[in-house]
Design a protein around this nucleic acid. Sequence first.
RNA 1: UGGGGGAUAGUUUAAUCGGCAGAACACAUGAUUCUGGUUCAUGUAGUCGGGGUUCAAAUCCCUGUCCCCCAGCCA
Length: 576
Amino acid sequence: MSGSSPTSATNTKLTATVPESAASLDFIRNLIKADQETGRFDRRVVTRFPPEPNGFLHIGHAKAVFLNMGLARDFGGHFNLRFDDTNPQKEAPEYVEAAQCDLKWLGVIWDGEPKFASSYFEQLYVWATELIQKDKAYVDDLSADQIREYRGTLTEPGRNSPFRDRSANENLRLFSAMRKGEFPDRAKVLRAKIDMASPNLNLRDPVLYRILRAIHHQTKDEWCIYPTYDWAHGQSDSIEGITHSICSLEFADHNPLYQWFLQALNIYAPVQIEFARLELNYTITSKRVINTFVQQALLDGWDDPRMSTLAGLRRRGVPASAIRELCRQVGVAKTNSMVETQLFDHCVRQTLNAVALRRMGVLNPVKLVVTNYPIDQQEEFLAVNNPENENAGVRPISFSRELYIERDDYQDNPHRKFHRLAIGKKVRLRYAYIVTCTNVIRDDAGAVVEVHCTYDPATRGGSTPDGSKVRGTIHWVDCRTALDAEVQLIDHLFLDPNVAHMKADEVIEVFNPDSRVVIRGVKVEPAAARDARYDTIQLERQGYFRQDCKSAPGHISLIRTVALRDSWKKIASKAG
RNA sequence: UGGGGGAUAGUUUAAUCGGCAGAACACAUGAUUCUGGUUCAUGUAGUCGGGGUUCAAAUCCCUGUCCCCCAGCCA
């Protein structure tokens, strides 16, 4: 700190919580650390997460929220949730609700009550009149089209509006009349008087207020004029005492305007820092595109399990901690970047591997008959719930003469490295017995309808008392106890990894029609169906699954969160 | 082509004052394994180009190239 010794518990905490041991901090943490060391901020760090409630939160928001909350936590500061609700035409109360629900699920804890930019409307109005009195704002009668014309272009300066030189008194009177509803929607605006020739277009007399007769989800019909983002954002930050206002790269050009307002009003000025937002390949977050897809019934809704909305990821069975881990691995920088979904999948598997209960389920069943097993006999084996965690315990699984196994686990003429069933070959039925395939029964078309095996009673539990090695172990479920289920196999929603940067009307062209494949006739052990309702489970050798919370009551529909890594696929494809 | 931002393995990132370019994912090979999972070991692979300063440059200087953002009364 600035050399003075800490005198209060608060100060002690502040210095003590600066992350110092960390080998490498991101550029924002380095900046804040430097700010604290030079005493640039004499107060503790305050950050905020400021979503507009105009849609569902997605994985990109997760990065922003973890960054802002992490900053506050790391530096012993304060973290606000604020809804930037300045455009009632696009916003709705259900988004305010959903955002809080999604954030809680993510494990985000904000300090105090959620804030709303709309609760600062009166103060913003007062400040606007102050600007007018200082001859720094004026009421403009130009239409939106005319304002655009007058603004000039990237290379040509703009021209002053003919209404730019109205007197402060006239502006005050007109602005007050705007608020009172004396003019039709969009008839007039309040603009800052800055510089129509500025090379930064944001400084060419930006609009501060527009007339809009819309019912606002928070302020109802109290207002018919609404502040723009630029006018509301910085002052809201200032009111909340935000020290570091973190935003995404595209707002860098707004920073001079952000500071201009605060200086003109002579009020506390936070520092704005821009970072690159999170983009995932094969993924889109555009609200407009998502809406179009929902309307065309290509998507279930905002919580479609193929989507990278938090609601979609949650429904898919992705744990919140995996999203946090992804954000941690991705880091924070100013370089535009596109993260591979493989990294995300890795984070999901890593998290789930440690905690997911192992269960057995057969996606594409064929019957296996243990011909030398007594017809009336049934027994139970104990199967471990999670080999990564002994404390997860065991569960009983039922075994009898007729089982379901994966159709793929039998082959007529197997590749040399195929370690599963073929006539004459041995395989271990997981946790049960070693069996030897004797023959298969076929239908008229030649398709296998039953695989026949004999079992060795000495191998009970799957052990090999004679010390022999059995390479293959396959999963199975008992026909007597198996439950019918369906499974939703989720794949990329789009076929083009760069879809996030495509034009909205091109996106439809790369929609992946196989992004959700529903498989029926699946057989699962009872515990699988039971546990998948509350947690994401692993179906051994298949992947991680979660009961679809949107499916009909009593109907078992498991969404595959992510498949297991599969090195056999590579071996098999090499062999041809 | 006005302004702003950026460029380190395939991807995302790290590198204190100018001092051994380091990770993770992906990929490849092998070992272990009652999940072709997990775990472990090993390997392939990088400083945008060209000059300059220096014993020493990802880092400093000059110069060029490429990418992203900005012309909403959206945020």
